[in-house]
Design a protein around this nucleic acid. Sequence first.
RNA 1: GCCGAUGUAGCUCAGCCGGUAGAGCAACUGAUUCGUAAUCAGUAGGUCACCAGUUCGAAUCUGGUCAUCGGCUCCA
Length: 638
Amino acid sequence: MSVKIVFADKQQLDFPEGTTVAQAAQAWNSKALDGAVAARVNGVSVDLGAPLQADGALDLIDMHSADGLAVLRHSISHVMAHAVQDVFAEAKVTIGPSIEDGFYYDFDCDTTFTVDDFPKIEKRMQEIVDADHPFVREELSREDAIRLFADRNETYKVELINDLPADVSVVSLYKDGDYVDLCRGPHIPSTGKIKAFKLLSVAGAYWRGDERNKMLQRIYGTGFADPEALQEYLDLIEEAKKRDHRRLGRELDLFQTNDEAGAGLIIFHPKGMMLRYLIEEWERQEHIKRGYDMVMGPQILKVDLWKKSGHFDHYRENMYFTEVDEQTYGIKPMNCLSHMLIYKSKIRSYRDLPLRYFELGTVHRHEKTGVLHGLLRVRQFTQDDAHILCMPEQLNSEIRAIADFVNYAMGVFGFEYEVELSTRPAHSIGSDADWELATRALENALKDNAIPYEVNEGDGAFYGPKIDFKLKDAIKRKWQCATIQCDFTLPERFDLSYIGPDGEKHRPVMLHRVILGAIERFMGVLIEHYAGAFPVWLSPVQATILTVTEKHIPYAQTVHEALLASGIRSETFFDNEKLGYKIRQAQMQKIPFMLVVGDKEAESQTVAPRARDGRNLGAMSVEQFVALVREMCENRAR
RNA sequence: GCCGAUGUAGCUCAGCCGGUAGAGCAACUGAUUCGUAAUCAGUAGGUCACCAGUUCGAAUCUGGUCAUCGGCUCCA
């Protein structure tokens, strides 16, 4: 029997059945195996050593491709587990997949691993690599596999096999040397193919990601096709550290957190507050343009109102409470309640809808200590929040308008983003019918507007499904900022109504939505995105005036005042230092323009701007400079 | 909240086996008056996160608390 194999270039060759993928590929093209780590036969990933058993299309997976790197890293994770068990005999293996940028493996081990153990583990890994053990695939019955792992005291592997679906009767194992792991594969042909790896960090992780389960020890590492690519990645990590918003927040004097004030609470310094003011002011204008009404509710509301809304029952552990005159008040974790009360303040007609209430609403949420992170995860934050009350038939166009708004806003700041639809979570309120209706409404709006999205099962808010917009920051981390949530429950609980054309009362639907999300988080993402070098319109300081010597101070002062009067955010730097020093300081502060003022400028009543990128713009009048800055602001230019 | 690590001057970090703290940069003062990424000299600055305990004696050892960092879980 022979099999017909079609290769990437459409060439078709016949081979005896049982010919391995590698042999076939070699016959097709003698260089085909260079850099190949695995292959796809009819779209299914297989080892290079896999036998060909049927006709099909074969293409090779290159080590440099995303799929190839995943295979390589998965193989390195086996080598790491192998090495860890050689170093720590009592370590039990659990799971160890490849992930974006690397891999990890989780172990259950009484000895706690530290980064100081890495050299030992890496040394052992290198020995395994040097030994060039082939990765050997074996298939065993469920029972035999369970017996094998039980004999080796690998209880987690036994649990994994036991939990496989009932119709799985055969499982695959991979061996390299004396190490055996339960694994679907594919793997690289042998450990010797590994040319570049590094262990990065150790952390705790719950078995199967469930906080009720045992905490395991996870070792993260990465691997690349060659040492150069690994070094490039390590350099990228260094670069990411340099643009960490917590570091830049201090260096650029934007904000602080303070032990004495409390965890997760941000204290904005003048420059950080200016940045925040600029973002917020921009937002207000954009909301007014789009038909939103600005409103504002109180910071605390009586606990009974939180009971009515369902927050007390479903969100209490995240809320702060305070006692005033024997009354318990809940400090708001969300802004919706006041907006509901505004709606209820009079009888609404269908002609009034949609109503769009916008509030830069400051909320408090009691986040778990371990999740706090700079500006990105805090306990007090301000949302650019709005609640849209509309008729069900208006949902579609309202969602579309919000999606357009988000798209516009992301464009202004230069972010890419992805869209996800999150459905009903385990812990939620409302009827199945309402959830169905709300989820359908969001989904239809996405489909009608041809917005590509992915479904995120069970990730909705407790009161309704949501569309999440995940923007990608400078180091490709994804952050949830914008979100649209569809809510039939709160209007019900607050008995909201409008009088329809038929003269009868009807129930409005509510959309909760944010565009930037939390201002604090968005600022954190922005700082990293721009690496602290904000575009001119967002720069807390747009120009700093540098004197060549002390005698130029009087003229520089008049320039400064003229700029301030023109609405330019100007700063003076008159220290008794050399010009080079002042330029260096201004450069490190990432100020867009440095205005050098010396004899020439004072005499000709000009300034000599030096742009942040080092370009010397030559002498120009103050008016010309003001016009330049204004134009850049309008174009939102860097 | 969980696992692990860390907490020394404004910042970055030294400080071995317990004997009451040190550098660079920043700051301040003085000199210098200088043209596109660091002028020179001097001075000052620390409850060693906090609270207990062990000890003749604790930055150092032990326990607790707080905070930060890397993750997990959760999330704007």
